[in-house]
Amino acid sequence: MIKEVIVVEGKDDTTAIRRAVEAETIETGGSAINEDVYRRIELAQQKRGIIIFTDPDHAGERLRRLITARVPGCKHAFLSQEEATKKGDIGIENASPETIRKALAAVKTDYTQEQSQIDWEDLMEAGLIVHPQASQNRMEMGKLLGIGYANGKQFYKRCQMFQITKEQFADALARLRQTEN
């Protein structure tokens, strides 16, 4: 049984989570999260901790940001769009139980109070911003670092949030460069 409560978008996500692991969930009902759901998430965070596990699309990322801004100290699980896509539909409910277990085993914790070792220059030098392939590079680096895909500004924030070290960043960048060659 996973100690933390997993925050998902809907019932199908809960079903997929329960096929993979023994866990309790809070369903937000999509991106239109209401005050009652926020209160349940805040209480779960105080009592057991939460893991935000939203779809790897714009709506899921928006919901993740809204919850993170309201509830400090969240843990996060990520899937890539490829891992969560079935017949053109993107969602946690499309992921295999094995993929869900892998994402939950690689949970990241939000450490927004501390300063990251990664700065804008690191992102520029790595080709993650202001580069013709920046979007694709961020997608691959997000997979390698286990922090998911994000635009440049959000990628930088995630590096801070999850305390990505220079060593972790350099290791992921080296692996990215190997796959390019």
Rank of each mutant, 00 (worst) to 15 (best):
V21H: 01
V21L: 13
E22A: 06
E22H: 03
E22R: 08
E24Y: 00
T25R: 04
E27V: 04
E27K: 11
E27R: 08
G29C: 09
G29M: 11
G29I: 13
G30A: 09
G30I: 12
G30V: 10
S31H: 15
A32V: 08
I33L: 06
I33F: 06
I33W: 08
I33S: 04
I33E: 00
E35D: 13
D36I: 15
D36A: 14
D36T: 11
V37L: 04
Y38W: 00
Y38S: 07
Y38C: 01
Y38I: 12
R39T: 09
R39N: 12
R39Q: 13
R40K: 13
R40V: 00
I41R: 03
I41E: 03
E42N: 01
E42M: 09
L43K: 11
L43Q: 13
A44V: 04
A44Q: 07
Q45R: 07
Q45E: 06
Q45L: 07
Q46I: 02
Q46K: 12
Q46P: 03
Q46M: 09
K47S: 14
K47Y: 02
K47F: 00
R48V: 00
R48W: 01
R48E: 13
G49D: 00
G49T: 06
I51A: 08
I51R: 05
I52E: 01
I52F: 01
F53Y: 04
F53R: 08
F53K: 10
T54G: 05
T54R: 08
